[in-house]
Design a protein around this nucleic acid. Structure first.
Length: 930
RNA sequence: GCGCAUGUGGCGUAAUUGGUAGCCGCGCCAGACUUAGGAUCUGGUGGAGUGAUCCGUGGGGGUUCGAGUCCCUCCAUGCGCACCA
């Protein structure tokens, strides 16, 4: 009886589906475990062998936990809104809903092929109105909330209104400190609030809402007639077409994620993410400590009394040689002197003309202009020239800096370029040739902080500044509020209605607000999205209008893990009981490319839902694992330029050639199948080859797996040839989960041989059944229990590659022992179930079990089979191993010394020198020091 | 430039705590069975040397009885950020 994987796998996949083997109940007395994959965007290209790496890992872990007695939630769904489907619709006239549904079908088929244990009854698709109804609902919760800085929590807008009625906004200033009331100023009293009309009140409330509408800078691409997301802009041009992109102010929805910067940062301490993942997020949040310092300003017009800078290095205050403000800063015109007016105008014009591309490309270019005004150093009264330059960003800090050329590289270059004299405050630490950003130098020329170490002076200066009332400690974040509008069709419509241009939340009972039917997906051309083309939908009546934007794909993905808990609920986004039972995702596996956007938005939404009382946890993912990418292994052929001749890689240097990607499926190793090549593309039908040793050898390179490189390997092919169980184990065997690695099919034979070898422990091709019911020996038990311990530990810590190797060791050893005993093999099958479920279930039944192996009890490693009484100790002389000696494990130091010194190999190495001491580490080694 | 991660046989990798470096697999070599082998099985396989032995975890230095593992330094690769004050 042979290992017929094709038949076995098909059979059990069907039986498991029929018996609903993977359905999970929300009602269980078992402990819960939530194992989640990042759901895929169903692209038209389908799955390649890189995608399942994470899915297989989580599947193994989920199955393992189930065997260990957990109620395991292991769902799957689709991040089904998104750009490519819309672009496809524009190019091919197929509605995104249609192409998306077709792609999902393909994905599902491919996933099913690999034998995952997903509970498909919980599937979610973000583009399904039954799903996005709740995405819209959550958006409305954000719209109806504000962040109370006093309590560091989200609260309802009606609480804020109550506060305003009581005391105005004196205790709750505008989150955006640049915002000014139409009447001027930034604060209003309860009395003033009472007199404001609806329009004014709504404007003010909008300044506090967590989802808010405001004029913000967007990436406007004139050529494409649309706004682009940041990730759609590469080096200042559109990723599609490479058209120029400019910053433009447009009225957009944003999420006030900046208010949560501190909590998002803090939360990282309690979650189990990789260091690099946490680092990337910290980086993105970009917290910096420093001070805001006010400087008196002297200018001709005398319209501006002071300017505020943000600095992380207040200790360098005596080294300030000039100030720089952003060209966009509103004070620029007010301080410019008559003499400098022309030059400033010219510079501002120049800055205006600079496109994003140029600014990005010419980061090192030094430009700037003196304003004719001066700031006064509050400590020594020095007058400091105020410049403008594009290297200072309007959006960060206060949009103005104090420049310290001896301590900052950019300031130094700027000073040098414009011949501004440089003050040295760090003595020998500054060499005059480049800035030194040290914090460890001793301060000189620095008034009251002379002689102090810079690091210590920071605090001293900040305290002084606060004492003098000219500034304060300040924390800054690099992170910006998240733009949440996309000028797209294929996304969630915003559930709001505009009356007199003021957005009001839709009644939740009217949700979902469904996308209107449309076949025109091109941008409207006015900066509005394709929805603007559906006039009847947009204009409800003369007074009421809908938003023509849709939400970004992050919206649906920000909470899908909650919906899986209760996917069919049409009363709430998920039942509170289900939310409390499943709680946090215990293990979340996915690619590192979602480090920032997706993870931050999900963390934000969960924090807000938690603050509003819908969840009892405020971090969504307890543990995050980023599986490595599987890269492609591309092959090249070399065409002799302007001919149809192809030269083998070893000879290509003798010709002038062009390198072309060739389909890896018609290359065996590096040897090209020349006949298949001729058939591959019509262009090559008459190709001629210059061979080496009768073969055409291809060039190779490791690159990302991509259709355009012809290096994509479809898992279906692999499963067809070797079976899902082999495929699953081989992907795991490739190396550590987190490591990136090139796909290399060569090793798969070894894993396949392993499964066949294991099969032969039960059935032999010629002899038929070989398994028996004899009693196992201690040696056999020992092999088994060592495997149990090792595989359990490895699975627990996601070290699947070493676990696969432990299976091989175990099967090799049992083969050597000629052990075909059911008593042993049965346990081995349970261990193997998470990794190779089909073959395990088949053999489980063949040896006489009736229930499914999916619910067998995981075997327990028994100490009694694992204890050793003695060990083959390595004996080293001066740290070099010279011999081995079998010593009893409970031997004492004296026993060991005696034994070791009596040994002839040891004697030989000692050469009759006396030993200094003997180091004996029980259970490890013995070292004789001479 | 800054931050993070990673460097081990021909290749993918292993070595959980400082304790026998190279488990397992690929590849390669030899053999068995065979009409045949790109099937299957068995044995061997880090490098040098006939050998005893010596050398070996990116390079250099250090700590230690003992270092792939800890510390310093340099180099290489990957990822992230990048005028962020």
């Amino acid at each position: 009886m042979e290992y017929n994987f094709r038949e076995i796998e098909k059979k059990w996949q069907q039986l498991w589906t029929d018996s609903k083997a993977y359905a999970v109940s929300n009602d269980s007395t078992k402990p819960k475990c939530y194992v989640l994959d990042m759901f895929p965007y169903p692209s038209g290209a389908g799955l390649h062998v890189g995608h399942p790496l994470g899915y297989i890992s989580s599947d193994i872990y989920a199955r393992y936990k189930r065997l260990k007695g957990f109620n395991v939630l292991h769902p799957m769904g689709y991040d089904a809104f998104g750009l490519p489907a819309e672009q496809y619709a524009i190019d091919h006239g197929i509605h995104p809903a249609v192409s998306t549904a077709a792609n999902i079908k393909t994905f599902r088929k491919q996933l099913d092929n690999i034998g995952f244990c997903y509970d498909w009854s919980r599937e979610v698709q973000t583009c399904d109105p039954k799903y996005y109804r709740w995405t819209q609902w959550i958006f409305l919760q954000l719209f109806d909330s504000w962040f109370n800085r006093k309590t560091q929590k989200a609260q309802r807008i009606h609480d804020l209104i109550a506060i305003f009625e009581q005391e105005g906004n004196r205790n709750h200033p505008f989150p955006n400190n640049k915002y000014e009331l139409p009447s001027g100023g930034q604060s209003f009293s309860a009395g003033e609030w009472g007199k404001y009309d609806e329009q004014q009140r709504q404007d003010i409330l909008m300044q506090y809402r967590l989802a808010y509408l405001a004029y913000t800078d967007v990436n406007w691409c004139e050529a494409l007639g649309t706004v682009l997301a940041n990730d759609e802009v590469i080096n200042g041009v559109s990723y599609r077409g490479g058209y120029p992109v400019i910053k433009k102010k447009m009225r957009q929805w944003s999420l006030r994620i900046t208010e949560y910067a501190e909590r998002l940062l803090k939360g990282l301490e309690e979650v189990d993410f990789s260091d690099s993942m946490k680092e990337i997020q910290r980086n993105w949040i970009g917290k910096s400590y420093g001070a805001e310092i006010r400087f008196e300003v002297k200018s001709e017009k005398n319209m501006v009394q002071e300017m505020v800078v943000f600095t992380t290095r207040p200790d360098t205050i005596f080294g300030v040689d000039f100030m720089v403000v952003a060209p966009e800063h509103e004070m620029v015109l007010a301080i410019t002197s008559a003499a400098q007016q022309d030059e400033v105008d010219k510079y501002l014009q120049y800055v205006q003309s600079r496109s994003e591309v140029e600014r990005m490309a010419e980061v090192k270019k030094i430009t700037g202009c003196f304003t004719g005004a001066y700031a006064v150093n509050p400590f020594d009264g020095r007058e400091i020239p105020i410049w403008i330059s594009e290297y200072v960003l309007a959006g960060y800090g206060t949009g103005a800096i104090m420049a310290v050329p001896c301590g900052d590289e950019r300031d130094f270059k700027f000073a040098q370029f414009f011949n501004i004299p440089i003050t040295n405050i760090i003595g020998p630490a500054y060499n005059g040739k480049e800035a030194n950003a040290t914090k460890d130098a001793i301060l000189e020329n620095s008034g009251f902080i002379n002689g102090m170490v810079m690091r210590d002076a920071i605090e001293v200066v900040v305290n002084k500044v606060e004492e003098l009332g000219i500034g304060r400690k300040q924390v800054n974040y690099k992170m910006r509020d998240a733009g949440w509008s996309r000028q797209r069709y294929w996304g969630e419509p915003f559930p709001v209605i505009f009356r007199n241009d003021i957005p009001y939340a839709m009644d939740v009972k009217d949700l979902p607000l469904e996308l209107p039917a449309s076949d025109d997906f091109r941008p409207s051309g006015t900066g509005e999205g394709p929805l603007a083309n559906v006039s009847a939908w947009v204009h409800i009546d003369d007074h009421e209008k809908r938003d023509t934007n849709t939400m970004p794909t992050h919206a649906g993905a920000a909470w899908y893990f909650l919906r899986y808990m209760d996917p069919h609920n049409d009363k709430v986004f998920a039942d509170r009981k289900a939310l409390d039972y499943w709680g946090q995702v215990d293990v979340y596996i996915g690619g590192a490319e979602h480090a920032v956007a997706h993870l931050l938005y999900s963390r934000l939404w969960v924090k807000i839902l938690h603050d509003l009382g819908y969840l009892n946890f405020d971090e969504p993912f307890k543990k995050l694992i980023n599986q490595g990418k599987i890269t492609g292994d591309s092959r090249f052929v070399y065409r002799v330029r302007n001919t149809n001749q192809f030269v083998s890689a070893g000879l290509k240097d003798q010709y002038e050639t062009d390198e072309l990607h060739v389909d890896v499926n018609i290359v065996d190793g590096v040897e090209l199948d020349t006949e298949a090549f001729k058939k591959w593309k019509p262009d090559f039908a008459h190709a001629e080859f210059i061979l080496e040793n009768g073969k055409y050898i291809c060039g190779s390179a490791i690159e990302k797996m991509s259709k355009s490189y012809f290096n994509v390997i479809n898992p279906d092919q692999v499963v067809e040839k070797y079976g899902a169980d082999t495929f699953r184990m081989y992907e795991m065997f490739l190396g550590p989960l987190e490591a990136s690695k090139p796909w290399d099919i060569k090793g798969i034979e070894g894993v396949h041989r392993f499964l066949k070898k294991m099969w032969r422990l039960f059935y032999d091709e010629t002899k038929g059944q070989v398994w028996n019911t004899q009693k196992a020996t201690d040696a056999e038990f020992k092999v088994l229990h060592r495997a149990i311990r090792k595989i359990e530990e490895d699975t627990e810590r996601f070290s699947f590659n070493t676990a696969v190797s432990a299976f091989m060791v175990c099967v090799n050893e049992l083969t050597d022992l000629k052990c075909n005993k059911k008593e042993i093999l049965e346990k081995l099958l349970i261990l193997l179930t998470p990794y190779a479920p089909h073959v395990s279930e088949e053999l489980w039944h063949l040896i006489g079990n009736t229930g499914s192996i999916l619910d067998a009890a995981y075997p327990v490693a028994e100490e009694k089979y694992l204890v050793e009484t003695s060990k083959e100790y390595p004996i080293s002389i001066n740290g070099k191993v010279r011999t081995q000696l079998n010593i009893n494990l409970d031997a004492s130091q004296q026993d060991v010394e005696q034994l070791v010194l009596a040994n002839e190999v040891v004697q030989k190495w000692l050469e009759s020198r006396p030993h200094k001491k003997i180091i004996y580490v029980k259970g490890k080694m013995v070292n004789v020091v001479v």
